[in-house]
Each structure stands twice: as C-alpha cells, then as structure tokens.
C-alpha cells in the first residue's frame, strides 16, 4: 500500500466526564462517510489521549469540549505529544469554544478550532489539508 491510498486515521475523543456527545458522534459518522477511519474514545487525562493516539497510530487527534476545560486539556495534550516526539500530529478542537479562546488555542499550537455551527465539511477539509503534508 502506498502513501497516497492509505486511509487517514483520526482519533476523536471526549472526556469521560462530559456526556455532550451529540456533536462528536455526528462528526465521527461524517468523517467515516468521507472515507476517514475514526477511532472514538473517552479519555480521563491528557496522557491517555496521547497514549491512545500512539497505540492507534493516528494521523490527527480531535477533542470535543462542551463545558470548558479546553485550554487546560489541550495544553496537556500538546506537552505530552512533544515529550513523546509526536509533535507533528495535528490536534483539532471542537465544541462550545468561546471566540476569545479560539485564538489562544491556535497560539498554543492547536491546528484547527471548530466552534458551534461549524460544518463537518470544514473539518474534513482541514484534516485532508493538514495530513496531506505528512503523507
């Protein structure tokens, strides 16, 4: 199998404590329909997100937030990715993210932020663009 027809693998995840899964489950289905492999998990800590990403050998990590905590968790995930030498894996964030926080997340190194109302198509396009660079 050569790189061009390798399926993109995405880890979609959400805190075990946050039950607002409607958006992320919708996105999972849309990604699958677009030919992207999706691994859906529920994490307990930023370290667990990175471990799942490593084990599943994913190209992109997506985390959904509905009640806050996005800056703290994203910072933890980015730090842990760098420690493990996985800093090249793009991290995307979605859910209820206030406008002010979007720019902060992007500054921290998050590759894309998709707030309420974002279309699945935008996420798919973002993933394809960012993963294409690595393949």
């Amino acid at each position: 199998m050569n790189a061009s027809n390798k399926k993109i693998r995405v880890l979609l995840t959400k805190s075990q404590l946050d039950g607002h899964d409607r958006g992320v489950r919708y996105l999972a289905r849309k990604l699958r329909e677009a030919g992207i492999e999706v691994i859906f998990t529920r994490y307990r800590s930023p370290g667990e997100v990175v471990n799942s990403a490593l084990q599943e050998d994913v190209d992109v990590i997506g985390i959904s937030f509905s009640v806050g905590g996005h800056t703290v968790i994203s910072a933890g995930v980015i730090e842990s990715l760098q420690e493990k030498g996985m800093g090249n894996i793009p991290l995307i964030i979605g859910g209820i993210i206030p406008g002010d926080d979007m720019s902060e997340l992007l500054r921290m190194g998050v590759s894309g932020v998709f707030g309420p109302g974002a279309r699945a198509g935008e996420v798919i396009e973002h993933i394809r663009t960012h993963v294409a660079k690595d393949l």
Binding site: S15, L17, D18, P46, V67, G68, G69, V72, I73, G76
Partner: peptide
C-alpha cells in the same frame, strides 16, 4: 482527582 483537571466547577 487527576480526571477532574480543567473541569472543576464546569456544568
């Protein structure tokens, strides 16, 4: 609890 990080007082 380590699982609580970022979520205390949320919701």
């Amino acid at each position: 609890s380590p699982e609580a990080r970022g979520l205390v007082g949320r919701g």
